[in-house]
Design a protein around this nucleic acid. Sequence first.
DNA 1: TATCAGTCAATATC
DNA 2: GATATTGACTGATA
Length: 460
Amino acid sequence: MSSSESVKSLTELVQQPCPAIETSKEGKPPEPSDPPASDSQPTTPLPLSGHSALSIQELVAMSPELDTYGITKRVKEVLTDNNLGQRLFGETILGLTQGSVSDLLARPKPWHKLSLKGREPFVRMQLWLNDPNNVEKLMDMKRMEKKAYMKRRHSSVSDSQPCEPPSVGIDYSQGASPQPQHQLKKPRVVLAPEEKEALKRAYQQKPYPSPKTIEELATQLNLKTSTVINWFHNYRSRIRRELFIEEIQAGSQGQAGASDSPSARSSRAAPSSEGDSCDGVEATDAEEPGGNIVATKSQGGLAEVAAAPADREEATQPAEKAKAQPLCSGTPGQDDGEDASRPRPLPEGLADAPAPVPSLAAPAAGEDAATSATAPAPATEAPGAARAGPAERSSALPSTSAPANAPARRPSSLQSLFGLPEAAGARDNLVRKKKAANLNSIIHRLEKAASREEPIEWEF
DNA sequence: TATCAGTCAATATC
DNA sequence: GATATTGACTGATA
């Protein structure tokens, strides 16, 4: 009951105009920081008015599994249909910056892979979608912003003061030091294509390089070790994310075709079906990093890969490939394009770009095997596994999917709150089916590859 | 301590 | 100008 209560209050909130927005935007103490700042706090549900501050968190906690992909899709539609920008939407509704919104909309992670915090934006989006006045409100915000902007502009002009960009309030200015700190700002590091290429190659060989390796890479590329470390972190997580997406997309596509014929499904899944050879399904397989499905399955066939000491590598490799491909195909052209900007000798092995296809077997470098070994591949990645390896997901979905037929753990009211169609359960099943189909095709290909004994071939 | 998730914010691209 | 990309940072977790 309590849950439905809060749900109710939330529903109300959703219905009512979101004042929070106004506060943050309108008064616009051009504080770009205000929304996020407060937001990051557990107490900050910007779009929701004060009294319900806690609700969003509660909601997130109690919310049923949401279709993140579907939500973002709808949000994108609404935004584009109404010509509403990501920035406005992000800052007023989600309390996130434009970049984050872009990222979120373009690469939503599956619900079960999200942490509580990560789910928050999706719950907000869902609530927003449920709000019949959502668009109007945003439109209003847009107008208000415009007005405010004009106002500022006018005043500044009249003052003949080269007022700095309105909202781009330099936080430095007001805060602590009166000095022109902007100067102290670290310049953003921009890696040259060759550097990225080299890092990618390094990644292919060791997704989890040892400190020593990192050091070497940094030295040879003339980068800071922290930059190299960050790069690896970012690359790993982004690849992982891509895989989620592809998984979903492949799934939905597969479904489309699969719905009628299984064969269609498999064909679509077909590797290069993508045409691009680059990303595509590849990723799908790779997806296993999240779950180990492939690992398990593949192990049989992809022995070599699996054999590699570094499970993690194994796990990531495919993904890597997905990513790597582009390199191959893409680089050729500009590849030579030097970046005179920064001369740096690429590490051997990394440098020989010629070989676009990284040798999976390359594990030669044992030293790091240890490193990677440290973290049991699937284990680590287990996040996915733990939460729901593809395998699980497809069949025995953990808690998430269970709901469908399982004893409804959530009060239906919640579902309505989130605007879950009555068919939520059905959709759930659908999604599961898609995933299962996707997995099947993956397995199929893996087996095929395995039987062929083509070590590297399976990079699709 | 290493890695991850989530995010910001600068920069690139459309 | 809006959106996408990406290096860096923070906090959480194992």
